[in-house]
Design a protein around this nucleic acid. Sequence first.
DNA 1: GAGGCGGTTTGATTTCGATCAAACAAGCGC
DNA 2: GCGCTTGTTTGATCGAAATCAAACCGCCTC
Lengths: 253, 253
Amino acid sequence: MDRARDGQFQATHQAAGGRRASGVMTVNKLLRLNSREKNILVKTPIMASLGPSALTKMLDLATAVNYESRDILFREGEEAESFYCVLSGYVRLYRLNKDGREADIRICGPGDTFAECLLYLGPNYRYNAQAAENVTLARFDIARVRAAAEQDVDISRAIMQSLANHLLTTMDCVANDRLQTAPQRVAHFLLTSCPKESTSASIRLPFQKSLLAGKLGLAPEALSRAFSALRRAGVTVRGRLIQINDVNALKQI
Amino acid sequence: MDRARDGQFQATHQAAGGRRASGVMTVNKLLRLNSREKNILVKTPIMASLGPSALTKMLDLATAVNYESRDILFREGEEAESFYCVLSGYVRLYRLNKDGREADIRICGPGDTFAECLLYLGPNYRYNAQAAENVTLARFDIARVRAAAEQDVDISRAIMQSLANHLLTTMDCVANDRLQTAPQRVAHFLLTSCPKESTSASIRLPFQKSLLAGKLGLAPEALSRAFSALRRAGVTVRGRLIQINDVNALKQI
DNA sequence: GAGGCGGTTTGATTTCGATCAAACAAGCGC
DNA sequence: GCGCTTGTTTGATCGAAATCAAACCGCCTC
């Protein structure tokens, strides 16, 4: 269970993210996945559709990495060696403008794959990636997976599905940014988090509110105000716990 | 050259877009591509990487369609039978909110492919598509191309490259929307339209300003004001003609 | 050349969310 | 449980762009 059982350490190019305040070099160990991690990985969308032989190939190519909260996984412009699949925790993908302001492009949680678009594109990462909390990731070498995809249609089909999904999700994001106000975005997010066909629900946010704010393209203050605007629609917030009294009222926002 | 030489008409499901004020049923003819159209198509990114046999297969699957300005190609929620590649003209992909307000998600010009993500996803279109001017498109049957991609790695690789490109472009769009002001977006657009390594340039917009506004997520008025804000950076606008005196000044915006 | 039409610009106003600052709450380590 | 750190809320203000309205302009038709 505990990754520390294995003494195999390996220096990586992510020096920036690998140091903690304590001065101890942390994680960035490259290991085969343990069985718990494999169990998670095989259930992710990108793996679930693979046949047995393709699945084995991909599992063989996967290594496990841990990052601590706020570690930088990679930066925009760096040469892209790997893409990733989140096993636990959350990762922020974001851009910087030239004043240093950040904007989140996507928040990746368990089961999400990111940077896999570089399998078929230029050699550099196109955005920054940072651990939003302690995370465990499956890492895949881009060149090797590219080769595997050429051999195995299952793999390339899985990648295409993943790309197509991300594309639609990202297009949704553009449309939502351009069409919806802050309370509407929050309402929409809550509705997608509700079990289908329920009239009321109670949700626990899977991450910090500031991360949700970034995901929705809002400042944290704006998210907070959006929540309080939703009180009149029967939404009660206490910490990460959110009570939705009337799902239909939320849909009217 | 003239498509009208051929009398083959065919009723399609796009009844909405097929009628003109004159009462004459227009276009929506499904034809093999003529040689001029083929020449354009084979140079598009999605076709250019194909080997000879894959190229032949795809050309065999392509039909040509014309739409007039403002015709609706398809609507969100409709069953998706085809995806498209633009041969000439421009197409808007957009979403509606429940008040009926529209937001553009993407503007597709010559060489651009759209809705190809549905090859690997649900059966319905996820946004609306409208001809922004008279357009000629290559239409591909989704089911047939899906089958062809299973057979031919060239084809599936080309689709993946297209998907990966759109994904990155769309992520850029999210980041730009969230990080850049109106003048910055316009400056960025102009810079991408300039020939590389030039100190000054003169550009002709390929489409109406109102379309550019939508592409940049702005109201037409906001685009107009952004242009006038760029005057101090040496940008002169007369109709569709744009004179950029100092490319480097634009980069500082 | 006169009109008409669609697109663009300009002006005035409003709205929404960002930003700054400060109060507040909640964990968490000790 | 205490105190610090970090995240969240609240308030006040500012700024950017949307909206509404009207003027303007270029282009096409007749």
